[in-house]
């Protein structure tokens, strides 16, 4: 009993004054993910890695936009999005106070423009992602004429590309066909 009293006196007050004083967290603490919309290219690598479906990208093919959205209520703060992001657009902060009065406030969103296909005119991929790919190719020393050829390819939707390839192959086959007498 005396030992316990001595322990109590020695320890003093164990309770932290939080929320009246800020609660310090460890330097490597993983808290609320912060999105940098200007760095993001809407490629959806984060959404593919997210284990809890907190991150989602949805296309609006009428308006021609892709919406990046993060639902903090679902986020488990694992930091996989930060790890897989090719442009470093997501960083985990040290914030942990996420309570809100209104559920809608738990969503972070950003809209990106979709590029329209050169051939069919339908929206198919984020314009920034195409731009990023071209910039990478340029930086890696792809000559200007080839770059333009690539641009034509990248700005065509997969369906049209497939169609064009099929037509191209069909043409080749026809050309090799011997004339029938």
């Amino acid at each position: 009993m005396l030992k316990l009293l001595r322990e109590v006196l020695k320890v003093g007050e164990a309770t932290h004054p939080y929320p009246f004083a800020p609660l310090p967290v460890a330097p490597g603490f993983r808290g609320r993910p912060q999105h940098a919309p200007e760095a993001c290219i809407a490629c959806a690598a984060c959404a593919a890695a997210c284990p809890s479906n907190a991150l989602a990208l949805t296309n609006d093919l009428v308006r021609g936009t892709r919406t990046w959205s993060l639902l903090y209520a679902r986020c488990i703060f694992c930091g996989r999005c930060e790890e897989v992001c090719p442009t470093g657009a997501i960083t985990l902060t040290q914030e942990f106070e996420l309570a809100v009065m209104n559920k809608a406030d738990l969503v972070a969103q950003a809209d990106y423009r979709l590029a329209a296909c050169r051939v069919c005119g339908r929206y198919f991929a984020p314009a920034k992602e195409i731009g990023y790919t071209l910039a990478l190719l340029q930086q890696n020393g792809l000559p200007g004429d080839q770059l333009e050829a690539r641009r034509a390819l990248l700005e065509t939707c997969p369906e049209c590309r497939r169609g064009r390839n099929a037509a191209h192959i069909a043409g080749l086959v026809e050309a090799r066909q011997p004339e029938v007498a």
């Binding site: 967290v25 460890a26 490597g28 603490f29 993983r30 488990i76 703060f77 694992c78």
Partner: peptide, 15 residues
């Protein structure tokens, strides 16, 4: 718990 937070970035040894 603080040891876990310091080592792993979460009070539970998550992720």
């Amino acid at each position: 718990m603080r040891m876990a937070e310091t080592l792993t970035g979460a009070r539970k040894t998550y992720g």
